[in-house]
Computed example of a mutant assay.
Amino acid sequence: MQVRLAVQVAAKVEGIRTALNYSKLSDTVNLLLDAIKYQWNLNLAYQPQTGTFQLKVRLDERHIQWVSQYATERGINATSATNLLISEYLSGNSVNFSPQPAATVATDSNPIPQASKPETDIEKPKGQTLIRSLKL
């Protein structure tokens, strides 16, 4: 999947790419998505921003499903979700995302019911509200 980074996000990622001496911006984006998914603290928030003409990056297969799921849960597209995830991570904000396991076929005729999480009254921002609140 190919996504287009926002100019501000691309500038931050380009600074990180240069500091890490990575050859491709896509490699840096995939590293950041790994860090977000596995909750690594890479301490990259204070890297210099540099300009880049390359705004389109390719997500690795390992990120496509969970980024798409994150986007769907928030009512935005995968490009916006990628920009949001990276921006929030580089700003030092924690990203609340718990990937749901892929659907499996039950082979037991008596499945064990899953405990449900209690619903909270706090709604997650969706779509344009989420994008407007994006801080870069």
Rank of each mutant, 00 (worst) to 15 (best):
P113R: 12
N77R: 07
A6H: 08
V29R: 03
S98H: 13
E14M: 02
A103F: 11
A6S: 06
Y89S: 10
S80F: 10
E88G: 08
T107Y: 14
V7K: 05
H63D: 05
D60K: 09
S91R: 15
P48I: 12
L31D: 11
P101I: 11
A11W: 02
A115V: 11
N110M: 13
G15V: 04
S91L: 15
I86L: 09
V29M: 03
V105R: 11
I112F: 08
S23V: 13
L85H: 05
P113I: 10
W40M: 15
D27C: 02
V67T: 08
S94H: 14
N41W: 04
D34M: 07
S133C: 00
Q100T: 14
K135V: 02
G127Y: 01
S68Y: 10
T18W: 00
D121S: 08
L85K: 05
A71L: 06
H63N: 10
L44S: 10
L31H: 10
K124G: 00
P125H: 00
K12G: 06
L44R: 11
V95A: 08
R62S: 15
E73H: 12
D27A: 14
N43Q: 15
V105A: 13
V67N: 06
Q114Y: 03
I36D: 04
R58P: 01
P125D: 03
Y38I: 14
K56R: 14
L130F: 00
L90E: 07
D34S: 12
Q2E: 13
L31Y: 08
K117V: 13
N21E: 08
S116N: 08
E119G: 00
V57D: 08
T79D: 10
T104W: 04
L5H: 01
L136C: 02
S116F: 10
G51T: 11
I86S: 02
I36V: 15
L55M: 09
G51C: 05
S26K: 02
M1T: 11
Q54K: 15
L84F: 14
L42K: 07
E123N: 03
H63M: 06
N77C: 12
N30S: 05
E73F: 09
L55P: 03
L130E: 01
R132D: 13
L5V: 01
N110C: 11
Q69K: 12
R62V: 14
Q39A: 13
K56A: 12
V95T: 09
Q8S: 05
A78G: 01
T104P: 00
I36F: 05
E73W: 07
K135T: 06
T72H: 12
I64Q: 09
G127H: 01
V57R: 04
Q114N: 05
F97C: 06
Q54S: 14
P111I: 06
V105M: 13
I112W: 05
N43V: 13
D108H: 07
Q8P: 02
D27M: 10
R58F: 11
K117W: 09
T52W: 08
N43F: 15
A106Q: 15
A11H: 10
A45N: 15
L134K: 00
T129A: 12
T107A: 12
Q100R: 13
V67L: 06
R132E: 11
